[in-house]
């Protein structure tokens, strides 16, 4: 009875004081840490690590580009890239990894910057399939949407686009000489409007530009999308009249699937 009593007394106080002290020490340490910041000790450790970079075991698809690759406008949120991945998984009966590096609203200049980041480069190294959509924002948004049909400005944007896409492809090739790169062409979302003649001309011009650049590289495939939206833009475009809807994306995905899966068939033979 008595020793029991004493034991309870001691254990209650021991637990209480121990937890109080540990946390008190922790809080004092953190306040010292936060109020008197140490200078960075990272340079060293970062360089140490650089000696043995962990090469990421990245999967096969690394997608780049703008809102089209993001899937904006698709109610299911998948976009062509997820649809494509699903189909590929079905046919190959295995998991296909996908890293989607696209950023909504990206122009070719943005993509050029992103490509130069070391981490993006790392991811590209181990990719096998690199789908990419770019240029739509350069043409329709960067040059002030279609109110601005000043041919001079558009021409200026086209030259930048040409230079960027060349840089991008060169850079990807530098990182990865084997992967197949699929570059999607532009389509004209305004094909049913009064200025259609003018915009059609621009889109055709830009697509030609892209194709010319692409021709310089091995294993880079140009996939046209212009034709897909030409006849019935309303049916395949989202309500914003700019992005494809899910049917539009399905059509784009089908094109890519067709190319890749055929190719796969060839390779397995």
């Amino acid at each position: 009875m008595h020793s029991n009593h004493r034991l309870r007394w001691i254990s209650i106080f021991a637990v209480a004081i121990a937890s109080f002290s540990i946390l008190l020490i922790g809080s004092i340490m953190s306040l010292i840490e936060l109020f008197r910041p140490q200078t960075s000790n990272l340079q060293q450790s970062a360089s140490q690590k650089a000696v043995s970079p962990s090469s990421p075991t990245v999967g096969r698809i690394v997608s780049l580009g703008d809102s089209l690759t993001r899937g904006i406008g698709d109610d299911s949120g998948k976009g062509y890239i997820q649809l494509f991945r699903e189909q590929l998984q079905k046919s190959s009966k295995s998991e296909v990894s996908l890293v989607n590096l696209s950023v909504s609203g990206a122009t070719s200049t943005d993509l050029r910057k992103q490509i130069s980041q070391p981490e993006t480069a790392n991811l590209l190294k181990s990719a096998e399939i690199i789908p990419l959509t770019i240029g739509g924002n350069d043409l329709f948004r960067g040059s002030g949407r279609l109110e601005n049909t000043d041919p001079e400005t558009v021409e200026k944007a086209r030259l930048t686009y040409q230079e960027n896409i060349d840089f991008i492809l060169k850079d990807i090739r530098k990182q990865n000489s084997k992967a197949t790169i699929f570059v999607f062409g532009l389509y004209n979302p305004f094909g049913d409007l009064s200025e259609a003649k003018q915009t059609n001309e621009f889109v055709a011009q830009w697509n030609q530009t892209a194709q010319q650049v692409i021709a310089k590289y091995d294993r880079v495939v140009f996939i046209p999308t212009y034709d897909l939206f030409q006849l019935e833009p309303k049916r395949y475009l989202f309500t914003d009249h700019f992005h494809p809807n899910q049917y539009g994306y399905q059509r784009i995905a089908n094109r890519l699937t067709q190319l890749v899966i055929d190719q796969e068939g060839m390779e397995t033979k």
């Binding site: 962990s54 990421p56 075991t57 990245v58 999967g59 096969r60 998991e95 296909v96 990894s97 996908l98 890293v99 989607n100 590096l101 696209s102 950023v103 981490e119 993006t120 790392n122 991811l123």
Partner: peptide
């Protein structure tokens, strides 16, 4: 990890950033 197809933290983190 499943979404991306790999559990490599760098890839996951990069995807989060994007």
């Amino acid at each position: 990890a499943k979404q991306i197809g790999t559990s490599d933290w760098k890839v996951v983190l990069k995807q989060q950033i994007i």
